[in-house]
Structure formats: C-alpha cells, structure tokens
C-alpha cells in the first residue's frame, strides 16, 4: 500500500499581528511547525504502516524552509519526503495549491491512500482535501474521527452536526483527519539523527506536468482584497492574588460587583 500524507508548515502561534507598513501579516520571529491536524494525519498513516507495512510518503508545498517539517516527518517514520517548491507556485490560493498537489500525487503514481489534516490552523479553510480528491478523481471522506484499516478497505467514523456516520471506504480514497482520530507521537533524538540519512526530494514546477495557467497567482480565482485585525474585545488580563484562597475571594468579589455572579442563582 502506498500512502501520501500532505502536510503544511504553519506559524507556531496564530497570535499574529499586521505590520502597519506593509499591511501584511508579520511573521517575523515566529518559527514554523507542522500543522497540528497534519500530525494526526501522519499518525494515522504510521498506524496503517505498522499494521500493513505500507509505504508512507510525506509531501508539502512551500518555500525551502518547509524542509524542517518534512525532516521531522521523516524522523517520525515517513519513508520519503517531497517538497514542492517553485517561485511559480507563489500566491496560490486553495485551488491552485490543490492542483499542484494533485499533479505531484499523480507523478508518484499508484497511490492508494491520501491523508491530510482536517484543516490548517492558519488559513483554516479545510478545502485542500476535497479539492485534491476532485482533481485525482478519488472518493473522499472528510473529518475522520476514527480510522482503521481492514485489508483493502478503511473503516471510518465521522460526525456531522446531528449525525454519526460509519463509512466503509474502498481504496483508493482520500481521507482528512480530525484531532479525535489518535494521539500523535513526538520525535525522539535517535530518530532525528537517523532521519538525516533520508533526504528530502524537491520537485520544481518543471518536474511536474503542469498547465501554467493553473498555478500560482495566475491559477487563483480568489483575491484577498484586504486583511485587518478584528476589534478584539479588550480583555482585562487581571492577575489574581498569589494565594489560592485570596485569589478566589478576590474573583468572587469582582464577579459579584460586576453582576456576573448574582447571589443565589
């Protein structure tokens, strides 16, 4: 079985500010980490690998410094890693990104299972899974809260608003994974050292069979017209007393003064 896990490197914190001069999001000094939901997708892949001996290929699209996350995925247990990096990819929206990812998966060939996190914690769209499955002409199961492999099928549980679904999916299929699905493992030092024996492969635009009109900004129907920081309701950030009882008494007094706690509710 061949599994591709698509991951994204995201800022370590989402508590970002807008740079007043450039009007862009200021990421200076914020380091990149693997998107939390993608860790669950990776873990799901490693689970299946442990049971079936599947090959796990991890992939991301982004600038060269995204290699850090791919290296970590190798250390966690991926067999190989592919970075899709090219200046032509810059400015891509979800549609153009999904197109490049799907073409890279086609180039790998004979992929049985594509796994992604349910969404990224920065852009928050959750669109990549359905877009990639559409371009691959694959069936999709999104927001998997549980998945088990059973021969050449997957048993998946997912939750809609008021509905619980049990899905039996024949391979090939694309699945997006929630943080309910498993408990991701973290890397130990030995694995990190070993992972440097495996290297990350970089594919540029010229390595893929791409239609120029469908990549980067040219291939992106969406235009971000402006970004702003929402008027956050200013929080007081009032630090309570050091002693627990003093702190509790202080809090109750304040809440009663402000009518947030009314006596004898």
């Amino acid at each position: 079985m061949k599994i591709v896990v698509g991951i994204k490197q995201v800022p370590e914190t989402t508590n970002v500010k807008i740079n007043e001069k450039t009007k862009n999001i200021d990421r200076r000094g914020i380091s990149g980490v693997i998107n939390q939901y993608d860790r669950h997708a990776l873990e799901a892949a490693f689970d299946i690998k442990a049971k079936t001996g599947a090959e796990v290929i991890v992939m991301t699209m982004g600038p060269d410094d995204f290699v850090v996350s791919l290296q970590e995925a190798l250390a966690l247990g991926a067999d190989s890693a592919i970075l899709l990096s090219d200046r032509a990819f810059a400015g891509a929206d979800t549609l153009a990104t999904g197109y490049v990812l799907s073409e890279a998966i086609k180039k790998i060939g004979d992929v049985d299972l594509v796994l992604l996190g349910q969404q990224s914690v920065d852009a928050d769209t959750g669109q990549m899974g359905p877009i990639v499955s559409e371009f691959l002409d694959m069936s999709q199961v999104t927001y998997a809260s549980k998945l088990d492999v059973d021969g050449d099928t997957l048993r998946i549980k997912r939750y809609l608003e008021t509905v619980e679904q049990d899905v039996i999916a024949k391979l090939p299929v694309l699945v997006t994974v929630t943080d309910q699905a498993n408990e991701p493992k973290y890397v130990n030092v030995v694995e990190i050292a070993k992972s440097f024996e495996k290297s990350v492969i970089t594919w540029h635009a010229s390595d893929l069979n791409l239609d120029d009109d469908r990549v980067g900004q040219a291939g992106s129907p969406s235009v971000v017209r402006s970004i702003s920081s929402p008027e956050a309701v200013a929080k007081d950030n009032h630090k309570l007393a050091d002693n627990p009882q003093d702190a509790a008494d202080e809090l109750v007094r304040i809440l009663k003064d402000k009518n947030i706690l009314v006596e004898d509710k």
Binding site: P11, V16, V224, S228, S229, P230
Partner: peptide, 11 residues
C-alpha cells in the same frame, strides 16, 4: 484566519 486573529476580505 489564524484562529480568528486576522480578518480577510476576499473577492
């Protein structure tokens, strides 16, 4: 986006 820390206007 960014966990509600940023608002974007998209067309």
């Amino acid at each position: 986006s960014y966990g509600d820390n940023i608002m974007c206007e998209i067309v």
